[in-house]
């Protein structure tokens, strides 16, 4: 099963190398130094976690997609910022504050993901409509709670360290991201949940008659996507020391771009975690490269759009005969 995807994996690895070579040619040493890698490494997790959520939704098939990811991430941060000071004072007990912050953020993500899961799984809404509605709902709640302004956390040592202090040269958010991605990869590959999810995505009718609890599977999938989004929300809050309802609105597109670039089939049933991780890293490096070359943000948006279309085209032209030969 995984041998089919080696082409995609090799392709993504070479894209990464290609971007590095291009960076060396156009920018030189300042791109390759440790500091730049650390700053890129700290930025990948937000995008990567959201992309993993989109990937899970897409694998589950039936037009599965999660458009509410970044909205839920921001909402988790907002809820935690507003709620936690009632329980723990950030000045007196910074560690306890950080811990409760993470706990509240994750619970918000869990609840938000469950809302998506109930709507898609049990109520039977089309994923696009359900997550479109919850995207507006989550964003709206975050706007309503904060009145539309940013909330700053202040300097909370353990949390700030987590976001901005590399440990043995590795940014901790990146380490967390890799750990989470590894867990999801293992779950998808070895657990019965993963096997059933792929079957569900490739043929929902067969899955239903094979006795797979389709509704519960969808519920769990979207709940998991919500939890992933809230981890991203915690990382955003830790890294920027503030939360705002409209942070990273372009992630809705970019996460889909990452997932499509990683070769996840929009129709469901295929997708590999390692490819998503590699493609998120590639996009982050490309984005940094654009920054180094002083290319405007507007052009970057244009490039993301064109890239998305190109990858859709390449999935259509190149890989289909290739896969047929290999299998």
């Amino acid at each position: 099963m995984d041998r089919q995807f080696d082409g995609q994996l090799g392709f993504l690895a070479s894209v990464n190398v290609l971007i590095l070579v291009a960076a060396l040619m156009f920018v030189g040493g300042s791109f390759i130094n440790l500091f730049n890698f650390q700053s890129m490494g700290a930025q990948v997790p937000e995008l990567g976690l959201l992309s993993l959520g989109v990937m899970l939704a897409m694998i589950s098939g039936n037009g599965g997609i999660d458009l509410s990811g970044i909205a839920l991430a921001n909402l988790s941060g907002v809820v935690a910022v507003l709620l936690v000071p009632f329980v723990v004072s950030p000045e007196a007990a910074p560690s306890a504050y950080t811990f409760s912050f993470a706990l509240v953020a994750l619970s918000t993500g869990l609840v938000g993901g469950m809302v998506n899961g109930v709507l898609v799984g049990y109520a039977g809404l089309t994923p696009i409509i359900a997550t479109l509605g919850t995207q507006l709902l989550f964003t709206g709640i975050a706007v309503g709670l904060t009145g539309g302004s940013a909330r700053t956390l202040g300097y909370i040592v353990p949390m700030d360290d987590f976001g901005n202090m590399p440990f043995w040269g590795i940014p901790l958010p990146f380490a967390l991201f890799v750990a989470v991605a590894a867990i999801i990869a293992v779950v998808l590959r070895f657990s019965s949940f993963g096997k059933r999810l792929f079957l569900l995505g490739s043929n929902p009718t067969a899955a239903f008659f094979a006795g797979i609890p389709v509704r519960r599977m969808l519920f769990h999938t979207y709940t998991l996507a919500g939890v992933l989004a809230s981890i991203a929300g915690f990382i955003i809050a830790a890294r920027t020391s503030s939360v705002k309802w409209d942070y990273g609105t372009s992630y809705v597109l970019v996460a889909i771009l990452v997932v499509v670039m990683a070769g996840v089939r929009p129709a469901g049933g295929y997708g590999r975690v390692i490819c998503v991780v590699l493609s998120a890293i590639a996009l982050q490096m490309l984005s940094s490269l654009f920054n180094f070359m002083n290319i405007s943000n507007f052009f970057r948006d244009c490039a993301w759009g064109v890239l998305l279309l190109l990858f859709l085209a390449s999935a259509r032209i190149d890989l289909t005969p290739y896969r047929r030969v290999r299998s």
């Binding site: 037009g63 997609i65 696009i128 809705v252 597109l253 889909i256 771009l257 499509v260 929009p266 129709a267 507007f298 052009f299 970057r300 948006d301 244009c302 490039a303 993301w304 759009g305 064109v306 998305l308 279309l309 859709l312 085209a313 999935a315 259509r316």
Partner: peptide
């Protein structure tokens, strides 16, 4: 592209505006 039109038009949206 035979891809979902949501994904395609998200792409063109960014391309046009960019």
């Amino acid at each position: 592209l035979k891809a979902p039109s949501l994904i395609v038009t998200i792409g063109t949206q960014y391309a046009y505006r960019g």
